[in-house]
Amino acid sequence: MTDSISTTQSLSRESGVELDLLAREERITPVPLWRVRVKLWWRSARQNAAIFADNKIGLLGLAIILLFGVMALAHPILMATVWDARTYDPITGYSFDELRQPAPPSARHLLGTDPLGRDVLSQLMYSTRNEFILGLLAALITVTIATTIGATTAYFGGVYDMIFMRVADLIIMTPAISLLIVMCALFNPDLPQLAVVIGILSGFGGTTIIIKSQALSIRVKPFIEAAKVAGGGHRHIIMTHILPNLLPFSFLYMMFGVTAAIFSEATLSFFGLLNVRMSWGIMIFTAQAAGYLLSGVEYWWLLIPAGASITLLCSAFYLVGRALDEVVNPRLRKR
């Protein structure tokens, strides 16, 4: 590239102000444009990773997420190799070795068994995958909707903006969890369906308003005016200038979205309203249905593992979000 450009440069020097596009000699490009772009992207990703890695809390969050990821992946492997399906299946298994159910932790059942004689550790690991699917799917839907609406309402304004903002107000004013309970009671959705519902509610609701305020701050930047003067249409300005500057924030709010979705699922499962065979919320629901909810520390393995997992995974995504906040908001950085 250096060679070809320098010829151009010397040409333009000799010819003074020769700007005619038609007068072009052949030119070989040793490095195509897309490869330069990939390199640039990779470099900026590495820089951002370095900023993220500076934040120890973010790394802790990432480590917790990875740990749960390993748990989710390990479950099918354990079921296929070490764990006997009749005893360890999270839904249909029954531990015949124990005299009483629920049995306290032992060498065979590291986290004991539940009131129905199933292995708690197996349930915990099996549910992890569901939580990930639900959380990420819901957050992805939320952010896709919120970013699209936020970017376009901030750009166009007017009646279009007003309609979506009133819808958002309406959703925010409705208590989300009671709405979800009523809906689940009526339709008894499964996990992906729930993810879509949570995604839509949050996407048209609070997240839109947050993303729109970010988009508004981008919209008033002089480079938007510069793009207009360059001759760019609405589509060009939204796609090239607003969205790329908005996506880091969208990614950030996706992390917070995961947290919200997992919490909602846990609450709904606890009330037994979901068409889900096993999840952390169901584990607590099972303990509650069998009357162990208020039994205190005596039957801790029925409540603590699931409860702690919900809290840990939710806070992990939140911590990662906070660390990402420093990456996308340079003002928050200490130096």
Partner: peptide, 12 residues
């Protein structure tokens, strides 16, 4: 065409 005041904010 137009040249803008702020060299920091007038470029994406």
């Amino acid at each position: 065409q137009m040249i803008f005041q702020d060299p920091y904010e007038s470029m994406n």
